[in-house]
Amino acid sequence: MLALALCAAPSLGQEDPWGLRLQGGANVARQDCDRACQQARLVCVVFSHAGSKAFRAEDLTDDRNLPWGQIDFAMLASMVSDRKDIDPSVIADGSRRSGPQVVSFADHDWVHADYDFVSGSRNYAITLLLWPDKSVTRGLRCSYAATSDPADQIRAWAGEVRR
């Protein structure tokens, strides 16, 4: 089962501190659960960034078109607002593990990157999917316990979001 959460400091429709516009809608819900559940559950946030040129997915992998250093920082910093089980005082490390690369599924091309994140004794992973949509770059970032493998759930939900 895919547990979706929109857990961010700003309210829906507000700019978050990293320049990503959060999107709310009928398919986005917040799920709160106890601390043990949060350690393993999948948390996904949909966002968009207005003002992008009419890029193709391949264009989004180029640092000249999308500042990947800033994206990396935003993905790691977003963990603090996306997940209630993260204590910012014990963040140890975080880095991009793979990507950006273009992948195809659900009849679309996506820009995909994976991140590792350590907070205290817990290891997390983040999957980032980006796609161009006219003059907007849209995205889905999902975080989860590094020991789990929710790739199928993430792809299924990404396909639903992009319909």
Rank of each mutant, 00 (worst) to 15 (best):
P17C: 04
Q23S: 10
W18S: 05
D32H: 09
S11R: 14
W18F: 15
F47Y: 06
P17T: 05
A29M: 11
C33H: 05
Q39V: 12
C44Y: 00
S48E: 14
Q39M: 11
C37D: 09
R35I: 14
V46Y: 03
A36P: 01
E15I: 06
N27T: 13
L20T: 02
R21G: 09
A26S: 15
R30Y: 14
L12Q: 06
Q38I: 00
E15C: 10
A26V: 15
S48N: 04
G13K: 03
Q23L: 15
D32P: 02
G13T: 03
G13E: 02
S48Y: 02
V28L: 15
G19S: 08
L12P: 15
R35P: 05
P10F: 08
G24E: 09
L20A: 13
C44M: 13
Q14K: 09
C33L: 08
C44Q: 11
G25T: 08
R30Q: 10
D16M: 06
C37R: 06
E15Q: 13
A40K: 09
G13I: 02
D16R: 08
C44K: 01
E15Y: 11
C37T: 10
A29H: 12
W18H: 15
G19R: 03
L20K: 10
E15A: 12
V43H: 01
A36N: 12
F47M: 06
V28F: 12
V28E: 11
A29G: 12
G19D: 04
C44F: 00
A36E: 15
R41P: 00
S11P: 09
P10V: 07
L12H: 02
G13Y: 06
V45Y: 01
V45W: 00
D16K: 05
V45H: 02
V45M: 07
G13W: 07
L20W: 08
D32R: 11
G19M: 06
